[in-house]
Design a protein around this nucleic acid. Structure first.
Lengths: 202, 202, 202, 202
DNA sequence: GATGAATGAGAATTCATTCAT
DNA sequence: AATGAATGAATTCTCATTCAT
């Protein structure tokens, strides 16, 4: 243990700078939107010079990508943790766990999430789409394995409908129905929508 | 008399210019997004000088607002037509009619609709939100009148969930599941989601 | 008399248009200043189309020149009338008459006068300078004829000093000492300055 | 210590840029007038990019204000120096000192002064008016203290007449009677006007 | 003659990015 | 590594002037 004392002061400082810049970018992105997010402003908010910012990020897009990456990883980590052994659970429990996990993931930083979703749809941040594709694959497998317990026959479509419904309702609630999201009543309602869609008594 | 000869040549030219500019704006908005939609580019695409553009629209925002206005009116017109006497219909029919209407409205110009929804969420084009609020009110009344035929007890929340689910599924399909949207299979699936959520046998 | 009935309706209308445009220009010039005086605005205020404006004035500068011309003529007419036989008068009377005349000329339209003086000094409206040159010549002759009754030896310089002092005091009073100008007290004071400068007991 | 070595290279560069921009603005203002003074032209004349100009001045108006400020301070410094203990002097000396000081102040940069006076009268640069108000107050006090040695009874008006006469004559001479101004003959003449007006033998 | 829609060069301002210190 | 001054292409918007109707 006693080892690694006085670790690379340089790298530590670098890391602090990078973190400060990413935090600042997230903050500015939320407050101003992508178009009004200027690198000079971000640098100022981060307490760093523009030059330093460009030392770590080749351009504005990379900067925003890194913020998205970080946020996506945090969301994935939370989702993975909660849903690790979802495959063993009965549908009712699995759906509830999934919905709760997605809600929890959205509550990490709803404002940033909204800002980034906007970018996904505008600029097309691919990492974000990838998360969804991965989740979609998992849901499809899960439904396939229980094909005799559910109503929908086209499971590919059902998986997409299910995921899109869950995410859209949570996302829209985060924007315009805060109380529904925070009170936990939304979770109940979404579970009802999904379970009835699948034909599982709730 | 002689059948309105020599109609206002002046006004006709103006109207053509305005239409050309609005069309060009819609096209550029779809292809480039709001940030990269420059007034000079729009003017060029419209085959008109920037000056003419500014003769009719005081600034870029007003230009985009006008496009949104025009598109919103087209959608509302279509929705209104299809749903006029929806109140008399049994739930199953009403839901089908509603879903078909929303799908049809989204098919007027899916790409433009997407671009404008982005703006609603970014800049906050209010006309668009108003449409949703109006629809929401109608749905609430409809559910209230049939409260003993449906499962959800909190009809305010149910109305929001219903509308948000329908619109989100259609909107997302327009973006990433074109075939589902155009084939009509999405309509079936959404009806299933909604009818089961309401507890009406489909 | 009975002659000239139904005179050129065309020319009459033209004249009315020209007058309306000149009036509008003067008004806009006073309210907005030269830079913000746009031909379209002038046309609108005049109740005329830009096209008509350009029918009578080749460009903006000519328009403003015409306004200056008209104002200059009004001032000159008033000055000429009052000062016609100034040459016969004793100095005390002549100075008083001159000062009164200049004050009266400035009171025709002080705001427009100010706006135009600005332009003389900026753009260099020559007609205005010419008026001054003419007045200067008259004063020089007057002083030369009375060289033995006055103190200043260099009469060319004295004439310029005299004219400049009178005009500057009146012009500045029109801008920032309204009450002094309108009450007539300024006239007294200016006469005192001039008469004492010339060494004539007042 | 070693004699301020390695001084702020950063600040030095900045300062040079600001100075270059102000100098260029003054030059362009004189040559072209306010309306035709474009920021791009100023930047080019300053040998600097427009961006740099906007780094230090938020807009064109601020730029011109800064030029006015700098010129006003130079004039005030010169006036203050020459007139510091004017209060102790007899009228004849005081007037001569005052006139000389105003002439000297106008000779710092007559063309720029003219351009700026235009702006005072057009846009209304307030710093400039303030200088005059301050001078006016001083003159009033001076006349009040010598009320029994001078002719004018209304000393407030006399002070205004005196100051306006001196400044107008000098200003107009700077525009159209260069030789009078530079030769020093104007100073003599203005002193004569003022001293006789006050009733002090010259 | 009158109209006013159309034109487009030109002006102010912004901001991603570079590079000398 | 950090700094922040400098750059200039790109963008929004204005307005004198023209010309088809």
């Amino acid at each position: 243990m006693a080892a690694t004392p006085r670790k690379q002061p340089t790298q530590a400082r670098s890391k602090a700078t990078v973190t400060a810049v990413l935090d600042a970018t997230a903050r500015v992105l939320v407050l101003e939107g992508y178009a009004k997010t200027t690198t000079n402003h971000v640098a100022k908010v981060a307490g760093v010079s523009v030059g330093s910012l460009y030392q770590y990020f080749p351009n504005k897009e990379a900067l925003v990508m890194a913020v998205a990456e970080r946020h996506a990883q945090a969301m994935v980590a939370l989702l993975a943790e909660t849903m690790s052994d979802l495959g063993d659970q009965p549908i009712r429990v699995a759906v509830r766990t999934y919905v709760d996990a997605v809600v929890a993931a959205h509550l990490i930083d709803p404002a940033l999430h909204h800002a980034l979703v906007m970018l996904v749809l505008q600029i097309g941040l691919e990492q974000f789409r990838e998360i969804d594709e991965a989740a979609l694959a998992l849901i499809e497998v899960y439904l396939d394995e229980r094909r005799d317990q559910i109503l929908p026959k086209d499971r590919k479509t059902a998986a997409w409908v299910l995921m899109t419904t869950v995410e859209s309702l949570i996302h829209m609630a985060a924007i315009e129905r805060h109380e529904l999201l925070r009170s936990g009543r939304l979770n109940e309602e979404i579970c009802a929508v999904i379970l009835r869609y699948l034909g599982v008594e709730s």
